[in-house]
């Protein structure tokens, strides 16, 4: 068995390359960084939302004003406000996709952060397609169910 010292030396001397770092990491780690980026964008959007909405004139769901039915995202803002107040059950009733996203984000990002900190016996969560499919099912089922209840409420 021979050891290739030259290869190890070459690896140590190689300068850091952003491109290699970006394309060399695993798919799960890429999703981790994407999750951090999305959280940053959502946080910035939530921070600037009161200022933006007054400029754009958003007061109510435009989709509901025009069609009379809820859009797939109706109740999302209320769900975020309920979560920030600590009312998890209320947030689930308003829009279950929001607490689902928050729960998955905490678990996924937390496990990868712990792995990067070399906490023993902790491995970063693997991304499964089922997580995305389940989120999409939640959006559609919530949309159809809420509109069905609204229809019954206004036509009974």
């Amino acid at each position: 068995m021979t050891f290739n010292h030259k290869e190890n030396e070459d690896k140590q001397k190689k300068p850091f390359s952003v491109r290699e770092w970006l394309f060399g990491m695993s798919f799960d780690r890429k999703i981790f960084w994407l999750g951090l980026l999305m959280a940053l964008i959502c946080g910035a959007g939530w921070f600037f939302y009161p200022h933006i909405s007054s400029l754009l004139g958003i007061t109510e769901c435009r989709f509901k004003q025009v069609t009379g039915f809820y859009c797939p995202g109706c109740g999302g803002t209320r769900a975020v406000k309920a979560l920030l107040s600590g009312h998890i059950i209320k947030a689930i009733i308003y829009h279950p996709f929001v607490p689902y996203c928050l729960f998955m984000w905490i678990i996924y990002e937390g496990s990868h952060i712990l792995e990067m900190l070399h906490v023993p016996k902790i491995k970063g969560m693997k991304f499964e397609n089922a997580y995305a499919y389940f989120g999409i099912y939640i959006i559609f089922i919530n949309w159809i169910l809420k509109n069905f209840i609204l229809f019954l409420l206004n036509h009974s």
Binding site: K64, T67, Y70, L153, N154
Partner: peptide, 27 residues
């Protein structure tokens, strides 16, 4: 959905009478 909304908004359609109940008001 967004395209239909945009077109209906431009046409000036509004479907909400004032008496319609809102589910979120009950929530």
């Amino acid at each position: 959905l967004a395209g239909v909304l945009l077109i209906l908004s431009l046409v000036g359609v509004s479907a909400i009478p004032s008496s319609i109940n809102d589910l979120y008001d009950y929530m």
